[in-house]
Structures are given as structure tokens and as C-alpha cells.
């Protein structure tokens, strides 16, 4: 098959390689083959190879995907594949993007847990069946791959927008009964840079490899902000 791979920085170009097909071959296998046998200068990022670490996301035939769990059979078109770096992130080189802004936005959305108990106090009890816990559970399995961020139109249009992953993280903490920074987090996750800029295009939910729905989390944040405003807390 013919594989076009992005080479260079922002002003780079696609370079074509001929790669043999194998059964159960993943896109990451293809990129690894190119780097090991055809072009040792090719830069790309991966770690676990089993869909846990979130480091191998790339744009495959125009769509952001986790490459280690994407079979070539599923995405190849007319025996051609195009592999580029994730969109909406600065390119370091070839297939490697600079993820700093992506993770800085988690911090800006107050993505850090803040408890109120000391080590001398007993553990908080969170019932597995509680509504709050179930809502947090539905959003908690994010691996931070950046696929949603790359797929998001609003991130492309408004560089300040915190993006689906950071807002999804804020939502899981809003639903964490132990957390004590609810209002600060709602303030951080609201407004022009936050949940209120989401257009509900749902590209994040469509593309999330873990089948999470950041769109639902963002809608939840909007509801929580509204409730808190009505109560006069914000």
C-alpha cells in the first residue's frame, strides 16, 4: 500500500512510502515499519501500544485516531493511507505535536482534585450507586490522547477555548462528592473560553477512542453553572 506521511514542521509536506500489508496490521505498525526500515529520521510518539497511554494519536486519512488500536483494514482507502500529526496543536516535527497547551488547559479548567479532609480524618464514602458517582464514572476513562481536541471545530476557531478533554475533566471533578473547589472550577470552566463556547457539533464524542461523550460533560457543566447562578453562588 502507498502511505503518505507528514515530514517536517508546520511548513513540511507529505512524503510517500510503499509499505507491505499484513493481517491485523495497525496504523502504528505501519509508522513503525517506515521508521525502522525506510526512514529512520521519522519522528513519532507511542508508548503502551494497547490503548492505555494516549500518546500515539495521529490524523489518519483526515480523521484523528489512536493509531495503536486502529486497524489498517478499517481505514485504508484504495490501498492508500495518509498519516499526519494531530490538528489544533503545534507540530514539533513529523508526527509529533507539542501537547503543552492541551494539558495547560486542563490546569486552567481547574482539573486538579482538591479535597478538604486531612490524613487524620476518615475516608470519604462515595456510594458506587450514587447519581454523582455514576455521572463521573461515565466520563472518567479519558486517556488524554488529544483526539477530541484535534477534532474540535471550536478549538480551531477560538484558540483560548479549553477544549473537550479539559472540560470533561472539570466535569468529573464537579461530580466528585469529595471535591471542595466546586465554585472555583465552575468559574474556570465557564464563559467564552469554557463550556459556553461549545457549539455541540459533537466531533469530540464521535471521535473519542474510549467512546466517552465530552459533549454530555460540557452540557452538564452548562446545567451546573445555571443552577449555581440561580442559587446566587456564582
Amino acid at each position: 500500500m502507498k502511505v503518505s506521511v507528514w515530514k517536517g514542521g508546520a511548513n513540511g509536506a507529505f512524503e510517500e512510502f510503499e509499505v507491505p500489508r499484513h493481517p491485523s496490521q495497525t496504523v502504528l505498525d505501519v509508522v513503525t515499519f517506515i521508521q525502522r526500515t525506510l526512514d529512520p529520521t521519522l519522528a513519532y510518539r507511542y508508548a503502551c501500544r494497547v490503548g492505555m497511554c494516549g500518546s500515539c494519536a495521529m490524523t489518519v486519512n483526515g480523521v484523528p485516531r489512536w493509531t495503536c488500536r486502529t486497524h489498517v483494514d478499517k481505514v485504508v482507502r484504495a490501498d492508500r493511507l495518509q498519516v499526519g500529526p494531530l490538528k489544533n496543536l503545534p507540530i514539533v516535527r513529523d508526527l509529533v505535536t507539542d501537547m503543552r497547551e492541551f494539558f495547560d488547559k486542563w490546569a486552567r479548567a481547574k482539573g486538579q482534585f482538591q479535597g478538604s479532609r486531612t490524613r487524620s480524618e476518615d475516608f470519604d464514602q462515595v456510594k458506587p450507586s450514587s447519581s454523582e458517582r455514576l455521572q463521573a464514572d461515565a466520563a472518567i476513562e479519558c486517556i488524554g490522547c488529544g483526539v477530541c481536541y484535534s477534532a474540535c471545530d471550536v478549538v480551531a476557531w477560538n484558540p483560548d477555548y479549553l477544549g473537550p478533554a479539559a472540560l470533561n475533566r472539570a466535569w468529573t471533578l464537579i461530580k466528585d462528592e469529595r471535591d471542595s473547589a466546586r465554585l472555583e472550577r465552575l468559574r474556570a470552566a465557564a464563559g467564552d473560553a469554557g463550556c459556553h463556547s461549545c457549539h455541540t457539533h459533537m466531533s469530540c464524542s464521535e471521535r473519542c477512542p474510549k467512546h466517552l461523550s465530552p459533549t454530555a460533560s460540557i452540557a452538564g457543566l452548562k446545567r451546573e453553572v445555571l443552577k449555581s447562578l440561580v442559587r446566587g453562588e456564582l
Partner: peptide
């Protein structure tokens, strides 16, 4: 514009 005003604009 403050975040609070941005939230109110969204509600409006």
C-alpha cells in the same frame, strides 16, 4: 468582560 457576565450573556 468577566466570566460571570459571559455566563449571563449565554443565559440571555
Amino acid at each position: 468582560m468577566t466570566p460571570r457576565l459571559e455566563m449571563l450573556l449565554w443565559i440571555a
